[in-house]
Computed example of a mutant assay.
Amino acid sequence: MSKDVTARCERSDGWWAVEVPELPGLFTQARRLDQVAGMVRDAARMLDVKVGEVNVEPVMDEATARLLCELFDAKGEAKAAQERASKIMRETVSMLRSDGLTVRDVAAVTGVSLQRVSALQDA
């Protein structure tokens, strides 16, 4: 049976030093984070442990962690705003078309291409 684990990764001299708390004594390293899961599985095999999912957890200093939090928050807000704008655009196109405006007029009023108006009205 395989075991899901967390790989805690800290930068050290151009490498990621990797520790797996669920498997005491399992340490490895990787140049890039995308290599960590494979390195953990290889190291676990040497300990006769089968690893399933590897959750790669980079450990950052406080300032970097704070910036990453702000980044993810901003990305979430941007996604929500884009979803809201898309909904409003669909509603606007629908309303303008039902008011009798041509596709060209709707495109001119909303500032999008003719193709986009057509796609929105067909959605």
Rank of each mutant, 00 (worst) to 15 (best):
Thr110Lys: 07
Ala43Thr: 01
Glu70Tyr: 14
Ser94Ile: 07
Phe27Gln: 08
Val117Lys: 04
Ala108Thr: 11
Ala78Pro: 07
Gly25Trp: 10
Ser86Tyr: 06
Gln115Ile: 14
Val49Thr: 06
Ala85Asp: 05
Thr6Lys: 05
Glu62Val: 14
Val117Cys: 04
Leu33Gly: 03
Glu83Leu: 13
Cys69Phe: 13
Phe72Gly: 05
Arg8His: 09
Pro58Lys: 00
Val106Met: 02
Met95Lys: 14
Gln35Arg: 12
Gly14Lys: 03
Asp122Tyr: 09
Gln82Val: 10
Asn55Trp: 07
Asp34Met: 04
Val106Glu: 00
Arg116Ser: 05
Ile88Thr: 09
Met1Val: 08
Val49Pro: 07
Asn55Gln: 12
Lys50Thr: 13
Ala107Asn: 03
Ser98Phe: 09
Pro21Phe: 00
Ala119Glu: 12
Val112Arg: 04
Gly38Pro: 03
Ala85Pro: 07
Val36Cys: 02
Asp105Arg: 13
Gln35Glu: 09
Ala85Lys: 08
Met39Thr: 07
Phe27Lys: 07
Thr6Gln: 00
Arg8Pro: 02
Leu120Tyr: 04
Pro21Thr: 00
Arg32Asp: 05
Ala17Cys: 06
Val51Asn: 04
Val93Ile: 06
Lys3Thr: 12
Glu91Met: 09
Gly14Arg: 06
Val106Ile: 11
Ala7Gly: 02
Asp34Leu: 03
Met95Leu: 14
Lys79Leu: 11
Gln121Ile: 13
Leu23Lys: 04
Val109His: 06
Gln35Leu: 11
Val54Phe: 01
Met95Thr: 10
Glu22Gly: 09
Met39Lys: 09
Ser2Tyr: 13
Met46Leu: 15
Val51Phe: 05
Glu62Met: 12
Met46Ala: 11
Glu70Leu: 15
